[in-house]
């Protein structure tokens, strides 16, 4: 596991190596090294890599951004690429992994209206895993309700993979919720609609929603 290292010198050399990479494999290796430096100064360059259409490098960049945690949130939010849904998907994935509440608005709008299914699915997953522990209880409840509303609407998405991610998001959100909390029941109902008879059209979505229900019931589903 990487951990942020703000005291180290600026990773200028590593950034230069990244800029000079002239093959997909070279880019991947340079990105890995920059990610491993775990320096806040690397964040803007790692965000840039998300738009290079190199999935291996993008995975390494996302890992690096998640390791930087809240220090990566501003660079991610400030550099969202409106014209490249591939890059947006990776950025939303990084925000989802960081779980910072500043990303909530973006996750909501991404799930509701991004044209890229990969962006919507990453947003749905992220809406289930925001880190709210440090906030006052009433604020936590209010934010969880916002996540829930977004996920309930996402359950009607036309793409199976987004509905799959909604099932995953709902599972995580409900696991962190008190059963007495107002949204708990509507979250369970949405999962039952995906899992039950007839349930979702796509078998893997039905299975995933069923797994979520068994976990929420305290079953041994995994």
């Amino acid at each position: 596991m990487l951990s942020p290292n703000p005291m180290a010198a600026e990773p200028t050399e590593l950034i230069r190596a990244l800029r000079q990479a002239d093959s997909p494999m070279g880019l991947l290796l340079a990105t890995r090294q920059l990610a491993e430096a775990c320096h806040p100064g690397a964040a803007p360059s790692l965000v840039e890599v998300l738009g290079f259409n190199n999935p291996g490098a993008a995975v390494a960049a996302v890992d690096g951004l998640i390791a930087l945690g809240e220090q990566a949130v501003e660079p991610l939010l400030a550099n969202l690429d409106d014209h490249n849904y591939g890059a947006r998907a990776w950025a939303v994935r990084a925000l989802a992994g960081i779980g910072d509440v500043r990303g909530l608005e973006l996750l909501e709008s991404a799930l509701a209206c991004d044209i890229g299914p990969s962006v919507r699915r990453a947003a749905a997953r992220g809406l289930g895993q925001l880190r709210l522990d440090a906030l006052p209880r009433s604020e936590q409840t209010r934010l969880r309700q916002r996540c829930l509303d977004a996920l309930l609407a996402g359950g009607g998405d036309g793409e199976w993979v987004v509905r799959y991610a909604v099932a995953v998001g709902l599972e995580q959100l409900l696991l962190g919720m008190d059963r007495a909390e107002p949204g708990h029941r509507s979250g369970l109902k949405a999962l039952q609609e995906l899992a039950g008879e007839p349930g979702d059209d796509t078998p893997v979505v039905r299975l995933r929603a069923g797994l979520a229900l068994s976990r929420l019931a305290g079953g041994a589903g995994g």
């Binding site: 990453a122 749905a124 893997v204």
Partner: peptide, 8 residues
Amino acid sequence: LAVMDELL
């Protein structure tokens, strides 16, 4: 399914 979850 666990591997799929990781890829979302």
